[in-house]
């Protein structure tokens, strides 16, 4: 079955899919950012305290 033109139903589904896509991209960005922060967390603490690692 096909529609000659875009039905309102398609618009709604498209909106839902785009929304979900953006949420998933955001989630990936959060996981990536968190990974970077966790890996470099010691460096952040040192930068705040002004004490270099090993000193």
């Amino acid at each position: 079955m096909s529609f000659g033109r875009e039905h309102d139903l398609h618009k709604r589904r498209k909106g839902r899919n785009v929304g979900l896509g953006l949420v998933l991209i955001g989630f990936v960005a959060v996981i990536f950012g968190l990974t970077v922060v966790k890996v470099t967390e010691g460096e952040f603490a040192e930068a705040l305290s002004g004490v270099a690692r090993g000193e």
């Binding site: 039905h7 309102d8 139903l9 709604r12 909106g15 839902r16 929304g19 979900l20």
Partner: peptide, 20 residues
């Protein structure tokens, strides 16, 4: 299926904003 009945069948399908 006529488009009118599809309208009726899917008129309540949720949008992204409904989940929000």
């Amino acid at each position: 299926m006529a488009e009118a009945s599809i309208d009726k069948l899917y008129s309540d399908e949720p949008e992204f904003g409904d989940f929000f």
